[in-house]
């Protein structure tokens, strides 16, 4: 087994650690660094539950080698709130009932963040396209689409 030194900037903080070269980003974030909001489900890129932002872009942490993203800026669900103030997307998800079991929620919110970063005022179709990589079994998606539309209308 090979270990290498790694630095990650997670949610704005610097972390220096030794990682296994075969560790996935999901495993390092969840198990080594304790960001338990990074959820694993399918493990194969079909569900989006493990979505985080790497250098501002939404990726699947279950298919990302931690070693390959050393030195990068990573944002997890834990990095969205500013102190006790939730991100507008988070507030909208709660307000619109876009959450049920909540297991897909962190990945869904991060995908929404990615979408709104790229396109602050998406249409309904653009929202569906932007979040199509994130499966939710509970909600039937309507309320998620409403929540993201609401944020988009608010201009944030």
């Amino acid at each position: 087994m090979q270990k290498i030194p790694a630095t990650f900037f997670v949610n704005g903080d610097r972390y220096d650690l030794m990682i296994d070269t075969h560790a996935l980003l999901l495993e390092v974030l969840r198990d080594d660094l304790g960001f338990k909001g990074v959820h694993e489900s399918c493990g194969e890129g079909d569900c989006g539950a493990c979505t985080v932002l790497v250098d501002g872009v939404a990726v699947l942490s279950c298919l990302t080698l931690a070693a390959a993203v050393r030195g990068k800026e990573i944002v997890t669900i834990e990095g969205l709130a500013k102190g006790s103030d939730l991100d507008p997307i988070q507030n909208a998800f709660v307000k619109h009932g876009a959450i049920q079991c909540g297991y897909c929620t962190p990945g869904m919110v991060m995908a929404a963040k990615n979408l709104l970063n790229e396109n602050p005022h998406p249409s309904r179709e653009e929202i569906k396209k932007g979040l199509a990589g994130n499966l939710c079994r509970c909600t039937g998606y309507n309320k998620i689409i409403e929540a993201v539309s609401d944020v988009a209308k608010g201009g944030k």
Partner: peptide, 23 residues
């Protein structure tokens, strides 16, 4: 009334525990 579900505040911040997250 359409009041928010309380546990969703934890869920939306990734702070809710599941069997998958318990260590």
């Amino acid at each position: 009334k359409r009041v928010p579900v309380k546990e969703n505040f934890d869920k939306v911040q990734g702070k809710a525990d599941y069997c998958a997250t318990i260590t």
